[in-house]
Amino acid sequence: MNFFFGIQNNLFSSKLEIPIFKNDGTFLEETILYKLKIQDLEWKIEIFDKSKKNNFFFHVNSSDVNNNDIFFIGRHENLKKFKSNKLIVLNEFTSLVPHGYHYRSNLRVNINKGGFSSYQSDYPYKMTPVKGSVVTSLASVTNFNADKNYIFFKNIYELPIQENFKIYIVDLKEKKIKTFFEAKTNYSNFFEIKKEYILPEMFLVSKNYVGIPIYISEKNGQISMEHTNPPTSNILNSDRIDIVKKFKRELNEIIN
């Protein structure tokens, strides 16, 4: 099961197109787009299928996107399983199947000056119970020559809480913390990255909570948005999990 999300602030707006079909062409009958939000330390669910387009997509306009709410698709009968104190798997419509592809929405970010960028996005359920650390190279998809570079760090955590956690910029050569940001769970966190940190030795390291690190850069209204791949995707060894753990430990020792 996947969740879908957007971002909204004074610089960027976003909209979502959530498909009602799998990549293999299977259409999901009688599906409803639901919105989840946190209220009084509980997950609140509401129906949000007001603008289905051509029976292919649920369309979520920028006026309906904010940094807190998340979306998923399901059927009415799935709600019997819904729990307000914890996210659980309500259906398998959007789950990954063998030899299949991730079920993704199109998240399109626009800047007031006119540019746009999109990526096929999803937040898999299996990430929501995870507490841990995300490590990613800061230089990978940022633009040194951009007017501005930003990190958009999306976390969805299973419990209906908005807890603060830190995201560090770490210099791997000097083994030093360069700066940090205060992020929160169940939120589309957004921070500007100063140019001085866009160097090969700089890594972004989150503490206690994982998430999807998405980088946005902007110059003269043209924008670039892309997420980075997790470190395990760089290794095919059978012991790749241990190799990445060791690498993460090296960076976590700097922030602890």
Partner: peptide
């Protein structure tokens, strides 16, 4: 192999 792009 069918692949329907999830993008309008």
């Amino acid at each position: 192999k069918n692949y329907l792009i999830q993008k309008f």
